[in-house]
């Protein structure tokens, strides 16, 4: 007791913190996704880091194909999201056996939200993007927080580099914040020439894959936990394509 009293108050706090139970590790990594005319792109890097500067693995997948029309990408704690992906896959498989059809995208989205919220008081440390083709053939992307709040969005980015990537996608994919009165008119030479009804350019699938890759390159340039390889999934009515691209390994 006497010894304890001699230790300065702040140090005692430090001592207490050391012994605190820390159930979470942030293995980091960046996931991004966006929807186009008839496709949904979901991409993630393949680095798995420690809480500090160590790289645990360079070949870790953050993306799971749930059905031929649904893909799930998650950043956060690896142990948690591996388990989460396993649970979603299990539920999707059980749905298949019971109903003789695939689970719908909106159904899967609600299922994921419920799984996350069921762990409300000991959250699953996982930030998800769920994308694919819905019941009426439209590409849709859902983004989540760790306890199951979710919403449809045209672009989404989660994980350690999410905050870097999201404004980039807003600008490049959605061409947001480009009203003439806010931003001076920019030259559109590098943009695809076809435009939708709202005057915004329609991005072809091939270019979308490049954009996803470039967004991850940009993230890996500024986020130490992102890098190595880019795993890019493209979901269309025909099914799921998987592309691998290189990122810098530094």
């Amino acid at each position: 007791m006497m010894m304890n009293q001699l230790v300065p108050h702040q140090d005692r706090n430090k001592e207490a913190k050391k012994n605190e139970w820390e159930p979470y590790i942030d293995n980091a990594g960046t996931c991004l996704g966006f929807t186009g005319e008839d496709y949904c792109v979901i991409a993630a890097d393949t680095r798995c880091s420690n809480d500090s500067y160590q790289i645990l693995s360079r070949h870790v997948t953050k993306i799971t194909k749930v059905t031929d029309k649904i893909v799930l990408a998650t950043g956060g704690m690896r142990a948690d999201y591996c388990t989460l992906h396993k649970r979603i896959n299990y539920q999707a498989e059980m749905f298949r056996y019971k109903n003789k059809k695939e689970i719908s995208l909106s159904g899967c989205a609600r299922l994921l939200s419920n799984i996350l919220y069921n762990n409300r008081f000991f959250p699953i440390y996982a930030f998800c993007l769920l994308g694919g083709i819905d019941e009426i053939g439209q590409p849709v992307l859902y983004s989540y927080d760790a306890i199951g709040s979710y919403g449809k969005s045209k672009v989404g980015a989660v994980g350690s580099g999410g905050e870097l990537v999201e404004p980039l996608l807003d600008s490049i994919i959605l061409r947001h914040h480009r009203q003439a009165s806010v931003v001076p008119t920019i030259s559109n030479e590098e943009l695809p020439t076809t435009r939708g009804e709202d005057g915004k350019p329609i991005i072809p699938k091939g270019i979308a894959i490049e954009y996803a890759h470039q967004a991850l390159v940009a993230a890996s340039e500024r986020d130490i936990h992102t890098g190595d390889f880019a795993e890019i999934y493209v979901i269309t009515k025909e099914g799921v394509e998987r592309h691998m691209r290189e990122l810098k390994a530094d």
């Binding site: 939200s113 927080d145 709040s149």
Partner: peptide, 8 residues
């Protein structure tokens, strides 16, 4: 408040 709590 918390989006998930309200939504759920």
């Amino acid at each position: 408040g918390s989006a998930a709590d309200c939504q759920y």
